[in-house]
Amino acid sequence: MNCRTIEHTADIGIEVEAGSLDELFAGAASGMFSLMVAPDSVSPAESREVSLQAADLGELMFLWLNELLYLSGANGLLFSSFDVKRIEGFALEAEVKGEPADPGRHRMRQDVKAATYHELLVEERGDGWFARVIFDV
């Protein structure tokens, strides 16, 4: 899996390449939380199950990343481990792990308000998968 950030005048985006769809979704989640906090400062102490159904892969990516932002925002959690167990059709099941945010201990980076649909892309490329997501920060 390979993830890089891309430039946007007001906001920020990521591009992810992975060998499988499961890895792609895990990589996008990891890329998003890396914008928010240094991942090695967050230990995978608590876990949450995520189960989603969408109408297409783009919507599934939008729902997945925003679901994690909801879980983070509503519960004051930061995540650092993303195990996408199954993607079948446009349904996803995953377990994510993290711990309560502690600004004193975690190396916080920036707030991510939401994953947007703007220029959102999830597609098969050659032997693997590619995704691009732009965030509102």
């Binding site: 109408a55 783009g58 919507e59 939008f62 729902l63 925003n66 932002l69 909801y70 939401a114 947007t116 649909y117 703007h118 220029e119 959102l120």
Partner: peptide, 23 residues
Amino acid sequence: CTDYLQVMDRVVKKAGLELPDRQ
């Protein structure tokens, strides 16, 4: 915003409306 984007994305799809940006 997130909640209603999802709702309206489906409205657009159902109506067959072509938009240059899903957002």
